[in-house]
Design a protein around this nucleic acid. Structure first.
Lengths: 273, 273
DNA sequence: CGCGTGTTTGAGCTGAGTCAATCCGCGTGG
DNA sequence: CCACGCGGATTGACTCAGCTCAAACACGCG
């Protein structure tokens, strides 16, 4: 039912180095050379300054496909920044019904919803073999006191998550199945672009079931919506391989059929030093 | 279309006193004697300490029914804590479709979703004549640096909002109209209890239209759901006057028909010093 | 090759939406 | 004081997007 699979430390030697704050060097490059560092928590931090980031980010962890990074009710000890791979988080009600709350890509930070109660509310499952950078929450709190930029970064991350949810509610309330799918694909495309990948061709890492759950639909309905978009020549979507053939049309569809300036929350303040 | 009505300072003399940080006394009792201070932002702060809260909270503002406290795209200068009355916030898409994002009661803090972009994303409209305590965001940031409890309080507030949205999504995806209404009423009831009011009898401050929008339904559907609950003898709901006659039944309904331990995020850490 | 998981497609059903008529409470003005 | 009008609430009749159930298909893997 949940996370029996184990999460493993990427490198035991790195782990021990971290325990001893003197040997920080092997970790610091983690952020500096991380291709998504601009999207992630340490945005705006003095990335060259070992004392700061080294103290913050724990040793990388590997999570195998299907394994749980954390489960609902686990107490919050660390947030996790996705380094590579992807995750889904899902909220399960007492009656066994559940929804996928979000999909997470490199640079995203998981666990912010646990800060309220200091316990996770979602299950986080790896959609593929993935790596995360653990961010001990206590240490983050302490460090944020000394580095206001870090605190601000955290605040923004949380606020952005609130806005994202707002937009999701808007989608659930106002859009048809086809529009939801369009909106989903456009959103994914945008996220891939932010990470330096193609806007038009990408691989879905989640099942139709998960997509359906995220979109507030049944998987059959998602399939039908896919079929219609394909018939319209807007996308070529076979299995999990997506190719967006007519992006303007897709974006038109996304917005209730009316052409418009799609803004949306930018994924990050995008401070490129 | 939006907030032409003016928001007015409650008391100009109080305002000027605040500008001069020496005369804090008239403001400090604001929080100390505020009946919802335990739910609000300053939770856990040394409430007797003038230097802290006095510097944080601006002069109370009065907002007339139907007036906008802020509008989407307004730049974020202050957060607002509801002191009395109530508000709705709504998110409007480019095409004119919109949804009510939340209803806000005394002790709630509005504007957290604006922190990401430093611009408000929602319109905030008073549902009745109301009063708010403005919290200048810059000042809050500065003060939070010196008072970690305050920072934590803010973090928790944001995180809780994320969780609330999660639960809303769960509702929108899994519940029938009737269940949504039940869930809405139970939620309201709980919030009234937290504020020291009756769990069973209260007044709705929003129109059926607003309820419908919040619940992802049409107002006609809300009416029908109300009619059914009434027919079942679970509530007496005439106009905006609610009386919950059978709370257990209502809670059973809320949770897909199965009896269960309704937890939900507690509204606040509830630190009573 | 056969099995299982995930995906696609088909055929009816239904809960909620739409459109429309009516009702109710309340403030306004005669 | 009552007639009127208006916005909000209610109820009814009909429609339809998405759900359910069911069958077939594709693919990857032992």
């Amino acid at each position: 039912m949940s996370g029996q699979l184990k999460v493993t430390l990427l490198d035991q030697s790195v782990s021990s180095r971290v325990a001893n704050p003197i040997h920080l060097k092997p970790l610091v490059p983690l952020c500096r050379e991380c291709r998504v560092s601009g999207l992630c928590l340490p945005t705006g931090l003095p990335i060259h300054d070992n004392s700061c980031l080294g103290a913050l980010i724990g040793p990388r962890m590997r999570v195998r496909k299907g394994a749980a990074l954390f489960n609902a009710n686990d107490s919050l000890t660390t947030l996790y920044a996705v380094r590579c791979g992807s995750f889904k988080t899902s909220l399960n009600s007492a009656e066994g019904q559940g929804v996928v709350i979000n999909f997470w890509m490199p640079g995203d930070v998981l666990g912010l919803d646990a800060i309220a109660t200091e316990h996770h509310v979602c299950d986080a499952i790896a959609l593929e073999d993935s790596e995360v950078c653990p961010v001990p929450y206590r240490r983050l709190q302490a460090l944020a006191r000394d580095f206001p930029v870090l605190q601000q970064s955290l605040n923004r991350l949380m606020s952005r998550e609130i806005v994202r949810e707002h937009e999701r509610v808007l989608m659930l309330c106002n859009l048809t199945a086809e529009q939801r799918l369009a909106s989903f694909l456009v959103g994914l495309s945008r996220r891939f672009v932010n990470r330096g990948y193609s806007a038009h061709g990408f691989m879905l890492r989640m099942s139709r079931e998960d997509m359906a759950s995220y979109l507030g639909l049944r998987l059959e309905t998602v399939c039908r919506a896919v079929a219609r978009l394909r018939a319209l020549g807007i996308v070529s979507l076979h299995g999990r391989l997506v190719e967006i053939l007519d992006m303007p049309a897709l974006m038109t569809l996304e917005q209730g059929g009316v052409e418009c300036d799609h803004k949306g929350v930018p994924e990050a303040p995008c401070s490129t030093p």
